[in-house]
Design a protein around this nucleic acid. Structure first.
Length: 192
DNA sequence: TGCCCGCCGGGTG
DNA sequence: CACCCGGCGGGCA
């Protein structure tokens, strides 16, 4: 592949049979973070899903951003690693290849980004912060989070404190929360 | 427009 | 507890 045509750089990091992957733009911004996968191919495929098949995206896998993938891994495993929001491509662009399609999705993600380590908020709380009753719409937007783990959508739970859904499965959500020290009994958060 | 959603709360047994 | 259902609003074909 011609390096000069590379539009996106993908780096992966393996830990305990799980592959973490990040996609980074030419501009050096993270455009997508994969949920951990059992093999590297799936992790890379998760990044490329962002792009339409007919976009013929140029990408290259290298170790250039392995440190970022490693940081994601560390957060997954319960470390309170800080990420700068400016390392993420938070642009809203419906037409172009952009991780975030609408202003509403962006607003939701920025609200979720405020949830402190080791705490949870409900979908309803996020909606109310944004001044809407579209609780389900918040769930939908959270579900499209291009930066899982870094923007902690796993910390958003149902109003009755049940865990709720997750792209990677509720078991994975459960595990990340557990790694953060959040107490869970069955499918419910046990403390406020 | 119509339909799908990582939701919510009130209802019933 | 278990379903069940109407309401809500954002996004997309």
């Amino acid at each position: 592949m011609d390096e000069n045509n590379t539009q996106i750089m993908i780096s992966t990091y393996k830990y305990k049979n799980l592959y973490f992957a990040v996609g980074v733009s030419k501009a050096g911004k993270i455009v997508w973070i994969a949920l951990p996968q059992e093999n590297e191919k799936d992790a890379i495929a998760d990044i490329l899903k962002l792009y339409h098949p007919d976009q013929n995206i140029q990408f290259e896998v290298s170790n250039k951003y392995t440190d970022i993938a490693k940081k994601v891994c560390r957060v997954y495993n319960g470390e309170d690693v800080k990420f700068h929001l400016d390392s993420l491509d938070l642009n809203v662009d419906k037409s172009k290849r952009s991780s975030i399609k609408t202003q509403f999705e962006r607003d939701v993600l920025l609200e979720v980004a405020k949830i402190p380590y080791g705490e949870v908020r409900t979908y309803k709380q996020i909606a109310e912060e944004l001044g809407t009753k579209g609780y389900r719409a918040v769930g939908t937007a959270v579900g499209k989070n291009p930066f899982p783990i870094v923007i902690p959508c796993h910390r958003v739970v149902k109003s009755d404190l049940r865990i709720g859904e997750y792209r990677g499965g509720s078991e994975m959500k459960n595990e990340i929360l557990k790694n953060e020290g959040i107490k869970i009994n069955g499918d419910k958060i046990t403390k406020k």
